[in-house]
Computed example of a mutant assay.
Amino acid sequence: MVLLVAGVFLLALGWFAGLAMVLIALGKLSGPASLALWILFPALTIAGSVLFGIGGKLGQIRSIVLGSALSMLLLAGVAAVSLVMSAAGMLTLPGGSVSLWYVFLVAGAMGAIAAAAVSRDE
């Protein structure tokens, strides 16, 4: 049970690091996206996934993986919409677009893998 709780906490913290990168690129948070966020976003997400995978029961794991997949795909979607709006001249990105591309690719890949893992169980 402790591993499950710790895993969910780390997973949420990793998702928040990705969200912070998006908000910095959009100018909603001040300062640059530090190297720590670039590393912690995927590292915490993967570490959290491993911990709850070890500590959870099958039903719990399935629910958490589905929630994780949806949240990562949502985060990737926000990054993608921001990139498209910026490319169309509808949005100015004070923080630049590099971190948005990173979040789009990493969150999109992790979300797609998690969604595929859940759908294979059915």
Rank of each mutant, 00 (worst) to 15 (best):
I46E: 07
K28C: 02
I39P: 06
K28A: 09
G31P: 00
T92V: 15
L44D: 01
A115S: 14
L13D: 02
P32M: 13
A20Y: 07
M1V: 11
V5F: 12
L70A: 07
A116Y: 04
A79S: 05
L70E: 00
G53Q: 10
G53T: 04
S68C: 14
L11S: 12
V5K: 14
A79V: 04
F9P: 00
G89Q: 11
F16L: 13
A25C: 11
A115W: 08
G59R: 09
L91S: 08
S99I: 00
M1K: 14
A117F: 11
G48M: 04
G18N: 01
G59N: 14
F41E: 02
V2R: 15
A112I: 04
V98Y: 12
S97P: 08
L19W: 07
S68H: 13
M85I: 03
L26R: 07
V81E: 03
A17M: 11
L105M: 13
L37N: 04
G18T: 06
A17I: 00
L58T: 14
L19I: 00
V65E: 09
M90G: 11
V22E: 00
G67V: 07
A36T: 15
G67W: 05
L40H: 02
R62Y: 10
L73R: 04
A20C: 10
S34K: 07
V106T: 01
S82V: 01
I64H: 02
L70H: 00
L23N: 03
L70Y: 04
P94T: 06
G108M: 04
F41T: 03
A36Y: 14
P42M: 01
Y102Q: 03
G59H: 10
R62A: 15
A33D: 01
G55F: 10
L100M: 02
G108F: 05
F41I: 01
G56D: 02
G77T: 02
S49W: 02
S99H: 05
S68R: 12
A80Y: 04
S86E: 09
V84D: 05
